[in-house]
Structure formats: structure tokens, C-alpha cells
């Protein structure tokens, strides 16, 4: 009985450690998807010159952005309102998984950019946001490596300690 409980506590500790570390990894993946999103926006604007509502309607259907809920929300809201800055800002404010407030603030620069300037200015602005996002990605990777390992180790050790105490 005690062995079973100890084993359970050990597993719980390991699971919590992995979940906590997973959040850091998730942020890295989401930021990578966001960079891909910006590249795709640039490409679609350059090649097809799509109106903003159609642009997001196209992006919504791409499976690579299914993990970015604000893309679908923006597309759905733009079918009713064409006020892109308000719509995109609101969609971002509703959160996106492990992205931090700082990450979302960088993405929010798109709300004042897309559709508000001529094409070349928008493309230049998107590159500028990508550069900022790259800094966030770098921060996310280093945190995943440093803090992710630390959190996982602490949780596993906590599980071991709890198991020992239970025994």
C-alpha cells in the first residue's frame, strides 16, 4: 500500500515536472508558428494583394495556424466588422496558450499595420515585427532550456521526496 502511494507520488511529481517544462516548449512552438504566420501574411499580400478580411479567411483555413486561436477569431469577427485594428486586438487579448503578455504585445503591432499603409510599408513593418518576434523566440528557447530543466528537476525531486516520506 505504502509502496503504491509512494510510486503514485513519484509519478505525479514527474508528470507535473514535464507539464511545467512543456509550457516553456509550447511557447517556443507558438512563437515559431507566429513567425510562419507573418511570413505567410507577407507572401499573400505580395502575391495576391488580398483585402484584409479575405487574407485572414485564407489563413484561418491553414492547418499550420490551428494552434493560434486569434487567427480564427479575427477571421470570424472580420466577417461582421471590417475594423481590423479593434478586431485583431480583441482576439489577441483573449490569450493564446503559453504566449506571454510581451509576446502578444509584439503581435499586437500588426493591428496598426495590416491594411493601414501601402504594400511596401506593410511588408517592411512585418519584417520589423518578425525581428522583434525573433528576440522573443530567443528568450523562449533559453528559458525552455534553463527554467524548463529546472522546473522539471524540481518537480521530479519533489515527487521523490514525497515518495520517500510516504514510505
Amino acid at each position: 500500500m505504502k509502496t503504491g502511494i509512494a510510486f503514485l507520488l513519484l509519478l505525479t511529481g514527474a508528470f507535473c515536472g514535464c507539464a511545467a517544462a512543456g509550457k516553456y516548449r509550447e511557447r517556443v512552438l507558438l512563437l515559431s508558428s507566429c513567425d510562419l504566420l507573418l511570413q505567410r501574411i507577407s507572401a499573400l499580400l505580395s502575391l495576391e494583394n488580398l483585402p484584409t478580411a479575405q487574407l485572414f479567411s485564407r489563413l484561418k483555413d491553414m492547418p499550420e495556424f490551428s494552434a493560434l486561436p486569434f487567427v480564427k477569431k479575427t477571421a470570424d469577427r472580420l466577417s461582421a466588422s471590417r475594423d481590423f485594428p479593434s478586431v485583431f486586438h480583441k482576439s489577441l487579448q483573449e490569450g493564446c496558450g503559453a504566449l506571454t503578455a510581451e509576446d502578444l504585445a509584439v503581435l499586437d503591432r500588426l493591428s496598426d499595420l495590416v491594411g493601414s499603409y501601402d504594400l511596401s510599408a506593410q511588408l517592411a513593418g512585418i519584417e520589423s515585427i518578425r525581428a522583434l518576434l525573433a528576440l522573443q523566440s530567443e528568450d523562449a528557447r533559453s528559458r525552455a532550456k534553463r527554467d524548463g530543466h529546472l522546473v522539471r528537476s524540481l518537480c521530479v525531486l519533489g515527487g521523490i521526496a514525497a515518495a520517500v516520506l510516504a514510505l
Binding site: P51, T52, A53, D83, F84, G115, S116, D118
Partner: peptide, 13 residues
């Protein structure tokens, strides 16, 4: 201008 172009100024250049 941005409202009239539905925030798609690039499409109306």
C-alpha cells in the same frame, strides 16, 4: 480612408 478601404489600403493602391 482606412475605414472606406476596410483596412485594406494595399488592395486599393
Amino acid at each position: 480612408l482606412r475605414f472606406l478601404t476596410e483596412y485594406s489600403l494595399h488592395s486599393f493602391e
